[in-house]
Structure formats: C-alpha cells, structure tokens
C-alpha cells in the first residue's frame, strides 16, 4: 500500500508545468503579496487577479474544478472574519435585535469581510497551482536558488522523502488498530463512535502508535545517517548549483512582476 494521493503534484505537459520552478515560486509569492496588499473593496482588482489565476489554471490543464475544490480547504477559517460586518463602523446594512443587544451590520464591514475571504481564496488557488504543477524536488531547487538556508532545504527534502514512507507506516498502524476495534454486533451504529473505551484511553492508544512511529523514525535515522556517511557525508550540506536563469526567464519574471505591480498600483490608486 502506497500513499500516492498525499503528493499533490499532478504530472502534465502544460506551459505552467514546464515553466522554471524559480519563476513559478517567485511569481506565486508575488501574486499572494499583491492580493494581500490590495485594499478592501477594490473589486475590479480582485476580479482581475481572479482572471489572472483562472487563466493560469486553464493553461495548466489541471482542471478548474480540481483547483477550486482544493481551494475550499481554507474555507473554514472564514469563520474567524465573520464578526467583521458587525464590528466595523459605517453605513448600516441591517440590524438584528439579539436579546438586549442590537447587532448592526455595516456596508464597510461587509466589504472588509468579503475582501478577506477573496484574498484568501485567490492566494490558496495560486498555492494549489504551484504545488500541483511543480514537482517538489524542483521547488527545493527554487528555494535553494532564492537563498533559503541549505540546511533547511536539506531538511525539507528528507522530510518529504520520508513523509511517504512513514505515512505508509502510520497507515499500517491505523489499519491494525481498526482490525482490532470492532463494536459488538447488534450494537447501535453510534456505539462504534464510542467503541474502545474512554476518550483518554483512545488518545493514549493513538499516543502509543505515535510513540512507536517516533521510535522507528529514530532507528531509521541512524541507518540513513550510516548510508549518508558511507557516501561521503561530512556534516555539511552540499548540492549542485541550480541551472542558469536565462534571459528568457528574467524577461518572463519581469513581465509577471510588472503586471502584478500594475494591478496593485491600480488598486492602491483608486481604493487605497
């Protein structure tokens, strides 16, 4: 049993897939920064940003549905911004009598709320496209290229490699637990939710599984260390220098950043 579905990379041959990882990485960050800096209520800018990311999604051949589905992951967090319409002062939209209180929603507050939700939604889409169109090893190269410390990128690489191996192990542990935790036959369906004793006991079982996962990870790290040593590892992290960043790459990067800067300028000028 292998956990393929954990890896969000979707192979493809689109121009988005083919683009240099450094380019995609920097442009994604710039896109998210632009969305973040765009003032609340600057609807045309949000629409243009959406048009931009939507074009990239179509170009990538990922399927807009796939990206949109994954982008809903961040949705529950919108709850955190839900009080905004009621706490920001401004023109009254509607009032709700609530016990002794009067809950008043303002237009400005609503605009802030929708803006936060839109910023978040646009940013998640960009991150989804980046992860789905760029193999993680290429992302590592991009991170090395923008001078993220080598020790950290080496850690990212190792973690990503063993994430799948250990996720397999975790899955086997969970399957073993499931195989031994049936509810009594004839019990109500809800009983299976409570099967296996108290919450504390269940948590401790999960904890024991986590403990054995950690123990195996410790032991594995010893063997990996030996394997690294035997191929010359000396405590320093080394990697090949990234391939050259060509003039064409620079041009694309400049064009992309300029476009985002224009959008941002537009937003700041009229709504800032």
């Amino acid at each position: 049993m292998h956990i393929h579905f954990l890896d969000p990379y979707r192979s493809g041959s689109s121009p988005v897939h083919a683009a240099d990882a450094r380019l995609k990485f920097v442009l994604t960050l710039a896109f998210i920064l632009t969305a973040s800096l765009t003032p609340p209520g600057a609807w045309p800018v949000y629409i243009l940003l959406f048009a931009l990311i939507l074009s990239v999604e179509i170009l990538s051949g990922l399927g807009v549905g796939y990206v949109l589905k994954r982008s809903l992951l961040a949705l529950p967090f919108v709850l955190a911004a839900l009080p905004l319409p009621f706490t920001v002062e401004g023109r009254t939209l509607f009032s709700l009598p609530l016990g002794g209180w009067m809950l008043t929603a303002s237009l400005e507050g609503l605009a802030r709320f929708v803006s936060v939700a839109l910023k978040s939604w646009l940013s998640v889409q960009a991150a989804v496209v980046l992860a789905a169109c760029t193999p993680f090893p290429d992302l590592l190269m991009a991170m090395r290229a923008i001078r993220i410390p080598r020790l950290l990128t080496a850690m990212f690489g190792l973690t990503w490699r063993y994430l799948f191996v250990l996720a397999d192990e975790a899955l086997r542990l969970m399957r073993a637990r499931a195989a031994r935790s049936g509810a009594e036959t004839g019990a109500a369906p809800s009983a299976s939710l409570r099967a296996g004793g108290s919450v504390a006991w269940r948590a401790r079982v999960a904890g024991g599984m986590a403990g054995s996962l950690f123990l195996r990870a410790f032991e594995r790290s010893d063997r990996i260390y030996a394997a690294m040593l035997s191929r010359g590892y000396d405590g320093e992290v080394r990697a090949l220098p990234p391939p050259t960043f060509t003039a064409a790459h620079w041009l694309t990067l400049t064009l992309g950043l300029t476009l985002l800067a224009l959008l941002l300028g537009f937003g700041l000028l009229f709504w800032g």
Binding site: M155, L158, T159, L166, V199, A206, A217, F218, M228
Partner: peptide, 21 residues
C-alpha cells in the same frame, strides 16, 4: 542533525495522521 531532524519531522507529519475520535 540532518537525518535525525529530517526523519523526525516526517514522523511528526505522519503522527498527525493518527487522529482519534
């Protein structure tokens, strides 16, 4: 440090899958 921390980070990741009701 590199193998130990790298594999333990993966273990924490995998450990996060061990949810309980």
């Amino acid at each position: 440090q590199v193998p130990l921390m790298g594999v333990l980070a993966a273990a924490i990741f995998a450990g996060q899958m061990l949810n309980f009701t």
